[in-house]
């Protein structure tokens, strides 16, 4: 089971570190990352493996939203089935 984390917002020190720290703590494996900084806008898409996660995905969402509010960026967590169903026939 996989999910996608996207982070969009003003660039600053430690965004990747903070997001990854939550992932590690939840036993979530990061399998792919694409990231870019255009002018001062930070954008990252992270593909994560949630098979070994000990808690429900909704808790990861809660923590990511909390982090997003704290550091002023928009963090989205979506189960991969959303993309599969919307973009595949």
């Amino acid at each position: 089971m996989r999910a996608v984390i996207t982070v969009i917002g003003k660039d600053m020190v430690g965004i990747v570190a903070k997001v990854s720290a939550i992932c590690a703590e939840k036993q979530v494996n990061i399998t792919e990352v694409t990231q870019s900084v255009l002018q001062d806008v930070f954008a990252m898409i992270m593909l994560i493996d949630i098979s070994n996660m000990k808690t429900p995905l909704s808790e990861l969402t809660d923590e990511m939203n909390k982090l997003g509010d704290e550091i002023g960026v928009k963090i989205h967590v979506m189960h991969e089935s959303v993309f599969d169903s919307m973009h595949r026939v």
Partner: peptide, 16 residues
Amino acid sequence: MINTRDILETINMVEN
């Protein structure tokens, strides 16, 4: 494989 364009399109639909 999930591609970046699909991801961004979906996020954009929800966000904006």
